[in-house]
């Protein structure tokens, strides 16, 4: 168990280094001169040269990577934006809560929808509910988040006027136009629903398949042979086993989504990591992109570790081996 953990942590470190190196290298292959960006489009050549020196852009890639890792580990700093000179740490700190509220809220909502529908459609295969769920799954899987987002914001936001069309309201610090829990909740409803529609579809399908498969397990028959009523068979024998793999998938999906819910954030104008990343990419703002990459990689790694740990707690076969 302990060695299993050590192995997972070492693996996470390797993964982290690999991902940051790859992002770095990709950025250097792109034929753009970041120094020109810093100095400004009309700047004379010597100003561009000075900018290069100041931001160490004249060094080879590996040296820049080393410098980046060093400042990150020693000073805990991700550097400064090339475009706005803001600290990357601050930019990420401002954008992360938006994405986190989107993803966590979305995950809660999609699980609330997917778990009951998945179970019920497994219990009554080919029933009306099952067929309706399958249509829902098809739509959810094939629809694009931008399309879902636009439709929702047009009908619910514009036509029915129930929610804001977009924009973000801070949960704690009220800004000039809106803020506080109620406004926050209001502004997040549509993004959450968009997320829910995207993921619930996948989860309904997976949960349905898992429950159906588990119901055919021998130990479920054993439980029935003991005289257990159907509700107890489901609760104590089917669901626990059927939902084990869902935990893994949920952890991985949350980690991934934290790295950039780009489309959903763009549609609803949420100033989260995805939106910031898109802007930074358009402006070739390497430090910002790296900052978000680091955050996303950490999120994925941490959630995967958490899943491994949780799995070890809920599955005795792993805990005790």
């Amino acid at each position: 168990m302990f060695r299993y953990l050590i192995r997972r942590v070492l693996w996470a470190v390797v993964l982290f280094v690999a991902v940051t190196i790859v992002s770095f290298v990709i950025f250097f292959i792109v034929p753009v001169e970041p120094a020109r960006l810093i100095a400004g489009p009309q700047a004379p050549p010597d100003a561009v040269e000075r900018a290069k020196k100041a931001y160490h852009l004249d060094e080879p890639v590996w040296q820049q990577y080393g410098r980046f890792m060093k400042t990150m580990i020693v000073d805990g700093s991700l550097g400064k934006s090339l475009a706005t000179r803001q600290k990357v740490n601050d930019v990420v700190k401002r954008a992360a809560p938006v994405t986190i509220s989107l993803v966590i809220g979305g995950a809660i909502l999609w699980m609330l929808v997917a778990v009951p529908i998945g179970i019920l459609s497994a219990l009554r295969p080919r029933s009306l509910l099952d067929r309706a769920a399958m249509v829902f799954v098809l739509v959810g899987i094939s629809a694009h988040p931008v399309w879902i987002g636009l439709i929702l914001s047009y009908f619910v936001g514009y036509k029915l006027n129930l929610t804001p069309l977009g924009g973000y309201c801070d949960l704690i610090n009220p800004s000039t136009d809106c803020g506080g829990p109620i406004d926050w909740f209001h502004s997040m409803i549509l993004p959450w629903v968009t997320f829910m529609l995207l993921f619930a579809a996948l989860y309904v399908r997976m949960i349905r398949a898992n429950v159906l498969e588990t119901m055919n397990e021998d130990y479920v028959r054993t439980a029935r042979a003991k005289g257990a009523p159907e509700s107890q068979v489901m609760r104590s024998h089917v669901l626990r086993n059927a939902l084990l793999p869902v935990v893994t998938m949920l952890g991985m999906d949350i980690g991934l989504a934290l790295g950039g819910a780009i489309f959903t954030e763009s549609v609803f104008g949420l100033p989260g990591l995805g939106k910031v990343a898109v802007e930074a990419l358009n402006g070739f703002d390497l430090p910002i992109v790296m900052g978000i990459t680091v955050f996303a990689t950490l999120a994925i790694i941490i959630f995967n570790l958490a899943v491994d740990l949780l799995y070890a707690v809920i599955d005795p076969r792993i805990r005790l081996s």
Binding site: D218, T222, H237, R240, L244, D315, P316
Partner: peptide, 16 residues
């Protein structure tokens, strides 16, 4: 009461 063919799969793996 009944005993089944395959003891390896007839007990629920997540319960003692």
């Amino acid at each position: 009461a009944m005993i089944f063919q395959d003891p390896m799969t007839s007990l629920n793996p997540v319960h003692t």
